[in-house]
Structure formats: C-alpha cells, structure tokens
Design a protein around this nucleic acid. Structure first.
Lengths: 117, 117
DNA sequence: TGAATGGTGAAGCATACGCTTAAGTATCCT
DNA sequence: AGGATACTTAAGCGTATGCTTCACCATTCA
C-alpha cells in the first residue's frame, strides 16, 4: 500500500520537470499515443517512455495498449490530490493571518481606549 | 531572469520531498527558526539547512537572520503559482469533458431521430 | 572571559535522474 | 512473406540529490 506522503512525493516529483508537464498539458487536451506525446519534445522516444513511466507511477496518467499503439490519458482526480495539499497549506496560513489581524485590531482598540481615559 | 517554467521546476521539486513539505507545514502555522524547523526531523541540522536552501531557491520560503537566529516564513504567493498550474490543467480537461458530453448527447439525439424516421 | 547556542561551509559518498544508443518484439500493411 | 510502424528493454554515462561529518564562525549569557 502507498502512503499518502509517498503519493505526494511521486506527484510533485512528476510535475517537477518541464517535459513531463508538457506531456500533461498535451493530455489535458485529450488522449494521445506515445509518439504523439514525443513529437514536440526534443528527445528520443525512449526518453519519453521513461517520462511516461514516471507520470504513470505518480498516478497522474494512465495508459493502455491496444494493437501496437499505447494510448495515454490524464487521471484528473490525481491532480486533485496535488492541488489539495497546496490549498490546505494556504488555508491554514490565511486563517493564521486573519487571527493576527484581529489581534492587531484589538490591540489598537485597547490603546485607543487607554488614550481616551 | 527566471523563466516561468524553471520557477515551476524549482517549486514542484521543492514540494517533492516529505521533509521539505513538513517544513512548509510547520511554517504555515507561523515563522520559525532553523533549529525549530529541524527539531521534529530526524536528520542533522546541516541537512535541514540544505532543505531550507531548496525551499528558498523555489521562492516558497524566505528567511532573515537577526543576531544568531535565522527566522523563516512562507511566501504564500509562491504557493499560488504552483497551485495555478494544476488548476489550469484541470480547467482545460473539464472544458474538454463538457464538450465531449455535448457531442455524445447530440449523437444520441441524432440516433433517436433516425430510429423514429 | 569562556562556554554554550545557533548556524555556516566544505568535502565526501551513495543513490537517483535524465538522457543516449542499440538491439529486440509485436502489430499492421501491401 | 517482408517491410514499416510503434513501441520496449537494457546498458551505460554524466550530473544532481540527500544525506553525513568535521571544522568553523558569530552571538549570547553566566
């Protein structure tokens, strides 16, 4: 079984490469074969297959071979997991920031009262 | 100057490590010193500093030294950039999915008409 | 002043990554 | 059958990553 943290490792690692992101961008437009994915990339087909393996291991992409062509498609729920971690951190940070704002506002209020007394 | 794509490389690379994510999670709660960041992590202080450098290079974290303690804090706008790439891919994928739904609905409609003629 | 604290910098090392080339397999087409 | 297409697999290679240890500073405090 895969730990949630390992899952994130694989996913962010997969996204940390411009070629792989290009492949995901292409697949966001619709399914594609391996050679179609390779076409815009300046590297051997072998290298593309290796990138594809990284994407598949991360769960971001799934592929299936029929006849001699392998068709790849994105797994959009996997993107959710990657996105969720980020948005949760941001939410925590913003909540903290709001609290901080309140504290500062209260302090200003207190000082205001004091100056009037 | 830093290309947008390199920026994403650095950011996702930075997030692709559980220790570094732990550091970001800690910093989401508020600023911390290097040793505070190191405390829950099972590695040398030196290693933590190296992780910190990766986080700083990515723009996710900023730090500043006063006296002999370095205080670190997250840079929440940097998280936005990472999040945006993902949500944009998802948006494109979903738009495509909607179109596909329409096409299938239209086809079903056509077939329906034919079967009645 | 001298010890403790908090961090810095460099070197070294094992493993992982991103790529290449080269040789092979399975499928499709004529 | 024979050739073209679409991968697949394995080996190799240079560089990057994630640590460690050890030798340093600076600051702070007794």
């Amino acid at each position: 079984m895969l730990h949630h943290s390992d899952q994130l490792d694989l996913m962010y690692q997969a996204l940390a490469d411009a070629s792989r992101r290009a492949m995901v961008e292409r697949l966001a437009l619709g399914p594609a074969s391996v050679s179609e994915l390779a076409e815009p990339l300046d590297m051997s087909l072998s290298a593309v297959v290796q990138h594809l393996q990284v994407l598949e291991a991360s769960g971001l992409v799934h592929s299936e071979k029929v006849g001699r062509v392998r068709t790849c498609r994105i797994e959009p729920q996997a993107l959710d997991i990657a996105e969720r971690w980020i948005s949760q951190r941001r939410a925590i940070w913003e909540r903290r920031f709001d609290r901080l704002g309140q504290i500062l506002a209260n302090q200003a209020n207190e000082q205001d009262k004091e100056s009037k007394s």
